[in-house]
């Protein structure tokens, strides 16, 4: 078995409401030095050995990420 980590984040230029509001919340708690905060998704997959990173990329394109608004990064664990 192989394990892959997938990080899904907002595409550059797409507003990230959850990230921005969390940054503001930190600011109101006194953490004024945070200039950017992005919130995304972390997905971990266990796959049979025959699955390659390209296969995981296909899963991202089709379902795990929405390419219209999100980027993804894949890392084998």
């Amino acid at each position: 078995m192989k394990r892959f980590a997938v990080y899904v984040t907002s595409k550059e230029g797409i507003f990230d409401p959850a990230g921005e509001n969390s940054r503001k919340a930190l600011k109101s708690l006194g953490f004024s030095g945070v200039t950017d905060l992005a919130i995304g998704k972390y997905i971990e997959l266990e796959v049979e050995d025959s699955n390659t990173e390209e296969e995981v990329a296909k899963m991202c394109e089709k379902l795990l990420a929405n390419p219209v608004i999100e980027d993804y990064k894949i890392k084998e664990l």
């Binding site: 797409i14 507003f15 409401p17 959850a18 509001n21 929405n66």
Partner: peptide, 11 residues
């Protein structure tokens, strides 16, 4: 339809 719908600005 084109585009996407994301979280409301104020969440």
């Amino acid at each position: 339809l084109p585009g996407a719908l994301i979280k409301n600005k104020e969440t």
